[in-house]
Design a protein around this nucleic acid. Structure first.
Lengths: 109, 109
DNA sequence: TGAGTATATGTCGTATTTGACATATACTGC
DNA sequence: GCAGTATATGTCAAATACGACATATACTCA
């Protein structure tokens, strides 16, 4: 795992220690976190592709700019439900959502 | 949409009226519900394929049999996070999870 | 540089989701 | 029919996620 991603995890409030500690999380937990970050990145991309601001997206989904920011930052307080809602509200199709789920880490640790 | 699925939605506590009403839900909301039910079905299949009882799965994921039952029933009180957690705890790979996301309705309404 | 816009971060009261428990129903072999 | 096992349903206190707000920081363009 790259240092940058680790930094991002910590910044987002995840209880992550060293790389070693992270690897010691149960596979499920690790995969869950990875999935969320992957979706968060995909959401950000989708939103920008549509030339949409966080405020616009927030309005579309009945939320607030700050929460959208947290979603995209992979904040620990954000659920899958909210990410997926945001994704769909950003205009993504089910197929795009599915594709986002399949994107793996760009770089192996 | 088939009547059976509609019945299932109501039974699960979703605020669903007639087929017409359902179709009037925002596309996002409808897709969200559909996705949850799809995942719920896939989870049940995965669990049974591994010869696992709801109690076993519950223990693996630190939850209870009743909640696993609700997950598989597509209960309205269950989040994506919990479904995905269950899915992974049932031993599904990320690829299987992704595949589950891609499964569409078997029958068009 | 500064104004204008976009995004990030921290906090909080409220709403939703949770595991746990009790208990009901379904299924299976006898 | 009756056990024994699996699954379903209802409820609730505690945990978590939520939108909202304030405010900080970043980015653009003149």
């Amino acid at each position: 795992m790259k240092t940058e991603r680790l930094r991002k995890l910590r910044a987002a409030g995840w209880k992550v220690g060293t790389t070693r500690d992270f690897l010691n999380l149960s596979d499920e937990e690790a995969m869950l976190v990875e999935l969320k970050l992957t979706l968060a990145d995909a959401l950000k991309l989708t939103r920008k592709k549509r030339g949409m601001s966080q405020i616009e997206l927030a309005q579309r989904m009945g939320s607030s700019q700050s929460r959208v920011a947290k979603i995209e930052a992979g904040d620990a307080s954000v659920s899958f439900d909210l990410i997926i809602r945001a994704f769909l509200a950003a205009g993504a199709t089910r197929q795009e959502l599915q594709r986002a789920f399949s994107i793996k880490e760009k770089v192996a640790a």
